[in-house]
Design a binder for these strands. Structure first.
Length: 244
DNA sequence: TCATTAAATTGTT
DNA sequence: AACAATTTAATGA
């Protein structure tokens, strides 16, 4: 059962720390915040479950408190295409919440994750009453537009190293995912699922990126050292091939 | 707190 | 896909 259907039963209140990590909560006036906090729910979701499914009516606007989600879509042939990952601090679904439509994507956890939900009615109430909230949403929509344009470029990249680099750069986006910070908690296997490459190839790409100084590979995560380089660096074809 | 063991993740072929 | 090496997490004295 998707999380958006079962959030009612599985919900619990957010801790003070979890509330503090929500990027838009600080932009609200006291009475607005009071209303938002009263409605916010949090639930745990595991791999294989759905946070929300394509076609289901949108009931919540979601945010990742902890963990890692993937956003995907099924085409008419039953194949699944992954668009992007959603790391901590990311909020999504505002487009469909705005129009009160059905979800256009599937959202599934790549590992055990904590997902917060704000009911669409409260979402709309905030839109009607809070300037700060409107500014956040506008900023978010604008930033995501840039992300999707970048995603189209990534799709046309044949070089796996560049695909990994660009995909990582989007996950490190400080505006969309302020919860990530310097280190992104992600395993190489999880990253492989996201970019659609084998774990071996991802490992090779990460090693190359680390050699170039744009990231550092750590156990269970990655540290970004040079985000602009990740976004734009072009690799020469023969950087790390061993000579014959 | 420390040592031991299991589990997870990474590096390599 | 398989394997070894490394790191973390869990357990109990």
């Amino acid at each position: 059962m998707p999380l958006d259907s079962s959030l009612h039963q599985r919900r619990r209140a957010l801790t003070a720390g979890e509330l503090d990590a929500i990027p838009w909560i600080h932009l609200l006036a006291p009475q607005e915040r009071e209303r938002a906090v009263a409605d916010l729910k949090i639930a745990e979701a595991s791999p294989g479950e759905y946070v929300c499914r394509m076609g289901r009516p949108a009931t919540y606007w979601f945010g990742v408190v902890d963990g890692l989600l993937k956003m995907s879509s099924d085409n008419e042939h039953g194949q699944t295409m992954t668009f992007t990952g959603v790391p901590p601090g990311g909020w999504f679904g505002e487009g469909t919440a705005l129009k009160r439509e059905a979800y256009r994507y599937n959202i599934q956890p790549l590992r055990n994750s904590h997902v917060a939900g704000l009911h669409v009615d409260t979402f709309h109430w905030l839109l009607d009453h809070s300037i700060g909230f409107n500014r956040f949403i506008m900023n978010q929509l604008n930033e995501r537009l840039g992300q999707f344009i970048a995603a189209r470029e990534i799709d046309r990249m044949t070089n796996p190293d560049i695909r990994v680099a660009r995909s990582l750069a989007t996950l490190f986006n400080p505006v969309l995912y302020p919860g990530v910070g310097e280190v992104l908690r992600i395993t190489q296997q999880e990253l492989a699922y996201l970019v659609g490459l084998s774990r071996q190839r991802v490992n090779e790409a990460l090693t190359t990126l680390a050699e170039q100084g744009s990231i550092r590979v750590e156990y269970g995560g990655l540290r970004v050292l040079d985000l602009p380089a990740l976004r734009s660096h072009v690799f020469s074809k023969e950087t790390s091939r061993k000579p014959a």
